[in-house]
Design a protein around this nucleic acid. Sequence first.
DNA 1: GTATTATTAGAGTATATACTCTAGGCAGTC
DNA 2: GACTGCCTAGAGTATATACTCTAATAATAC
Lengths: 229, 229
Amino acid sequence: MKTRDRILLSSLELFNERGERNVTTNHIAAHLAISPGNLYYHFRNKSDIIYEIFLEYEKLVDFYLEIPENRPLTLDDLTFYLESVFDGLWSYRFFHRDLEYLLDSDRRLREDYREFTNRCLAAINRIYEKLAEAGIIYLQPEDLRSAMSLNVWLIITNWMAYLKTARASEGDGSLSLTHLKQAIYQVLTLEIPYLTPEYRERVMILREKYRPELQEQKRGVALVAGDRH
Amino acid sequence: MKTRDRILLSSLELFNERGERNVTTNHIAAHLAISPGNLYYHFRNKSDIIYEIFLEYEKLVDFYLEIPENRPLTLDDLTFYLESVFDGLWSYRFFHRDLEYLLDSDRRLREDYREFTNRCLAAINRIYEKLAEAGIIYLQPEDLRSAMSLNVWLIITNWMAYLKTARASEGDGSLSLTHLKQAIYQVLTLEIPYLTPEYRERVMILREKYRPELQEQKRGVALVAGDRH
DNA sequence: GTATTATTAGAGTATATACTCTAGGCAGTC
DNA sequence: GACTGCCTAGAGTATATACTCTAATAATAC
C-alpha cells in the first residue's frame, strides 16, 4: 500500500482509538515507523489528513443513503439504512467526538460538513416520504416529517457520545458496534406512533432485536463463544 | 469578589466563548490581569477549575429539574422545565462541546457526570409520569417512557452542536439562547402523538412559539429594535 | 548509464502549555 | 513592631507539538 494511504489508515485508527486531540502527527509517524518528514511530505498538515478522512466518510455515508427512485422502499431497506449508517458512524467515530473543534479549525471542513449534514437530513426526509408511499410509516405533513428527520439525525449522531459518557466505564469501558446499534431501538421508538397498522407488528419485532438488555445478553453469549469484536 | 470566584467566572466565560481546548490557564490569568502563580495558588490545575464549574452546572440543573411531589404538574411546569434546562445548557455551553475529552482526563468528573446524566434521565422520566397523571401526556408503558426520555435527553444535549455545525456560519455564526430554544420545538414534536385530546391544542400552540422560522423573524425584529444579544 | 523525479530519514526548531518556585506584600493580632 | 497566614507577582522550566530543512536513497525516464 502507498505510504499516503497508510498514513490515512493509521491516522483513522489512532484517532478512533485515542481521540484526535490525543494523537499528534509524531504519534502517527511513529506508529507507522516512518519519519515525521515523510509524513509531512505527503500531507501539508494535520488538518489535511483529517479533511481527507472526512471525504472518505462523506463518500461512504452518501453511498449508504442512496435512494432507489425507480421502486418503492421496503422494510428491509429501512433496516439496511439504519444498520449501514451506524457502520459508517462506527468506522469514523473519532469525527463526531471532536466535531466542533475540527470545524472551527478548518474552513473547508466546516463548509463541507454543513452541506453533508443537510444532504443527510434531506435523505432521511426522502426516505420517510418513500416509506409513506410504501404504506409503512405515515409521517405527514411535511413540517412534521422534517422535524422528525432532524430528531432522528440528532439521536443517531449523539448516541455514541451518550454511550461513552453515561454508560461506559461500567467495567472496561469498551464500546462496540453492537452497543452503537442500540440507537436503532431509539430511532424505531420515535417511529412507533407513525407506523401503519399493516406494518406495526413487523417493525415492533424488528425493534425488539435492538433492545438494550437483549443486546447485553447476546454480547455475553458472543463473548463466551469467542467475540468477534 | 474573591479571586477564586473571579477565576471560575472568567474561565467559564472564556471556555464558552472560545472552547476549553483553546483556553489555557495563562489566558485565564491574563484575562483577569493576575499572575499564573496566583491562579495556581487557588487551583491545583486546569482540571480542578473545570470540575468546580461542573459542580455549579450540576447544582443548577438539579435545581431546575426539581419535581414537586405534593401536587400534579401543569403545562406551565413543562414550559418551565424546558426553558430553564436550556438556560442552564446555554450558561455552561462549553461543557458539552468537549465532554468526551473532559471526562477522559478527569476520573471524578467522569463518574460524577455519569450519575448526573442518570439523574437527569430519571427526572425526565418522572416528569412524564406526572404529566400522565395530570392527563397531559400519556406515555406508557414504562419502557416506552424511558426510551422516549432518553431520546429527549439526546436531542436536548445535542442541539447546540447541531446549530454550531450545521447551521452557524450562515452569516456571522453567532449563536443565541433564542436559537438554542428552538430545541423545544423539536422536543414537543416528539411528544405530539402522546398528547391527550384535552391538551393537544394547547401544546401545539406552545410548540408554535418555538418554530424555527418564526424565531428567525422574531430575531430579525429584535435586531432592528436593537438586539439584546 | 545518467539525469530527473519521487520518496524517505532524522535531526532540529519555534512556539505553546501546564505548571513551579521564590520572594515579597498586606492585614490582622498580640 | 514583629509575627503569622493569606495572597500575589513574575520569572522560569520541562515537555509537547506541529512542522521544517537538508541530505540521502530509491524509482523512473531517456
